[in-house]
Design a protein around this nucleic acid. Structure first.
Lengths: 240, 240, 240, 240
DNA sequence: TATGAATGAGACTTCATTCAT
DNA sequence: AATGAATGAAGTCTCATTCAT
């Protein structure tokens, strides 16, 4: 990643130079394909996030990547393929981030907490990537939707495990373990809430809450409910 | 809404006729501006939802509205203005629906419950409208962001009020009212959780939970947490 | 046809003006679709003939038609469709020309002669059309090849009838009528020879033979052979 | 030709290997220029025939030749030059084939017969080459027309000689030798008839006539006419 | 001898938008 | 109130061609 960052910086300098009209001789020509491709994906994620899939132009992406349009097509085939490649790369990065954030030594709620923290940290650190995954990829046709769904399912699986573990420990005495279906619903709700929160946090450029604050908000919202559920206590519409 | 529905139906008939090659004399020329405009907005919402703002074409919208393109421009000025008009109309409809769904006689959590039910009912009944408000409107640049933000905020406000009221009543004694920012976050989390749940419920064709069951799952998950929050009891990362 | 010719002339004047840099106000705007479409087809045939299908550019066609490119696409959809439309129009014109050139009152060879004359006259009068049908349309993929084949088959049918009639009359006494297969082969050979001759005549811009000369060449080549065949006299490879 | 065939086969193997994903070490680097060039021409002829000049891509040609694009340019300069080289090579091959097919001991019509057989055999054996010479080469602008005309002329010349010889001997007494122009026309007509016949024969999968039968049909059709022409006997439009 | 990296130019196509009736 | 005719601008994508190694 370091290399990519560096390269990106170079490209940015180059661009700035070009924009200013200075004929930069530093145009960083002839770099290995791997590096160029990374730059292109970086640029694409940024532009897709800023403009949306349809409004993003390959011209702009190429310029931001510091390469010519034909090169982008040579390496990435088409706008659709480029978008897919972005989704693939960013999905994997996100899933990896969440997985490796969970502290397996911690208590049940500690594990949930650390997972959430990882999720919010990653989305906060890569807001463009998150915008692409959350807002763009789901809106546009099949090749993309399914790619995102797969990633989402992976995350839901992780969360499901966390919740189940929590439940099992919370009431080890009398395991009023809820039906699998209910747990699945809870996981979906939790992930949806987290996604929405992450998007919300990202759009508050001025006073964005830290990832800890965001994670805490979510824990506060759901932790008690999860605990109750595991003990068989439910809210009922007719209760009051 | 009834009127809109009727108009929409008319338009559909017209379209069907046109597609079938039947030279419909019913192409309903010379209808009052008010009606035509409604048809146009109906069509626009549908197309914007289906294709996204950038990919939606004025041609398709005009055809779906059963009018000629110059007429669309005469009445609605530009694609941007058309989009704004869609957002305005649908935002108001949603806010109205939620407001009138809340039973003012009910207990605090009963009010939240009824408000959520109203929200889910409306968004489920008008998925295109919700798609435009939720997915499209927030993605696109300045002209819209501003046009939308006010309205989106209003929607969040309704939910926020429900939450706040719940809180205030729950601990009338010492109202440890959380910061507005936190409440806004909670509202977003709630909406995200609800959406995710709804989508999940829809994919379980065999044993899809009823709308009420889904809402109950959500209440179970968050109600206790909301109560705690209002009483100043928080989950803490360092607890265990 | 007269109208088309006139329109074409107008367009040519306009073009000349444009090319010369004179801002022609006569740009003949806003003419009925039918007329514009004809102009476009005229232009397309000319350009396709001059450059070949692949090398022809829609820009050039549009300019020659005196219209903007979007209009060409509005009326004719795509390069492929435009090409198909050219083929359809020119095929029909050619078949009609040949059919109506045959003098039904004439003697057998007179009928063949008049048909050939009609063919060569038409191809000489519309060299671009013939170039498109003969050279371009057959070289490029399916949609076109079959369209041309159908036309060719029609012409072959006409020729087959002519030959058959010739045969029947030539040896009414002892009808050594050749097998249907042989007649079919002869018709194909005759049509192929005519096509090749027409193309050859068209490319000799300087000293192109008249259609009568061309037709006579072909008659001279095949008439005696046809007569012999009808009387059962064959050339044999082993004869000498 | 044998060598070319071999080279072509090699290239095909290489390609197959590459396509199958097998990292062929046989990719035969560092082969003598002569061989490489032959492979390139083979590939070019194939692609030009399949796609047409304009639609053929240097990329595809290079890949099919098993070489890199810069190498193609190094050896053959440009697309135009490559095309010219193809034409040159294939023209010479065809002329040679026809020349050496003529049996100089045979009678006049026997020589025509053997020449035609040779021509048909070669064009049938090298359909791509013939397609390039016949369909592509004559359609495209100046650089080629000139490069081709000489060679095409040479081919026509061979046929012309056969016809002329036939004529001269047939009526050695009073050689009413027709104008050169007429002979050229006859040659074109012959070739056209032959092509059409060949195509027709190929489509009759069930009962396709043999190559000799086809040639005989053609001889039957034209031999008598040729004889007459050489003796000054013409068909006349006003005869009947 | 051979090639991976790179691009300027230009192709087809679509779109938001306007004019004249 | 309504529309058929028309277009400038911009988008995606491909291609022949060249550097630098």
């Amino acid at each position: 990643m370091k290399t990519a960052q560096t390269a990106q910086t170079d490209a940015a300098q180059v661009r700035a130079g070009v924009r200013a009209g200075v004929k930069v001789r530093t145009k960083a020509k002839r770099m290995p394909r791997e590096v160029r491709e990374r730059q292109m994906l970086d640029a694409a994620v940024e532009i897709f996030a800023r403009r949306g899939y349809a409004a993003a132009s390959m011209d702009e992406i190429a310029e931001l990547a510091g390469a010519s349009k034909p090169l982008v097509y040579l390496y990435l085939n088409s706008k659709e393929d480029l978008f897919s490649a972005c989704i693939r790369r960013e999905s994997e990065a996100l899933v990896t981030a969440v997985r490796s954030a969970v502290d397996p030594e911690a208590s049940p709620d500690g594990r949930l907490w650390s997972g959430l923290l990882g999720f919010f940290a990653h989305t906060a650190a890569h807001p463009d990537a998150w915008a692409v995954l959350h807002c763009q990829a789901r809106t546009h046709g099949e090749p993309f939707t399914s790619a995102v769904c797969a990633m989402r399912q992976e995350i839901i699986d992780v969360v499901t495990q966390l919740i189940t573990a929590t439940a099992r420990e919370a009431c080890a005495a009398e395991p009023a373990e809820p039906a699998e279906r209910e747990i699945s619903g809870l996981a979906h709700a939790l992930v949806g809430a987290a996604e929405s929160l992450a998007a919300w946090a990202n759009t508050r450029g001025d006073a964005a809450p830290s990832e800890k604050e965001t994670a805490a908000t979510l824990m506060n919202l759901v932790w008690a409910g999860l605990g109750n559920l595991m003990n068989g206590r439910c809210w009922s519409a007719t209760r009051p």
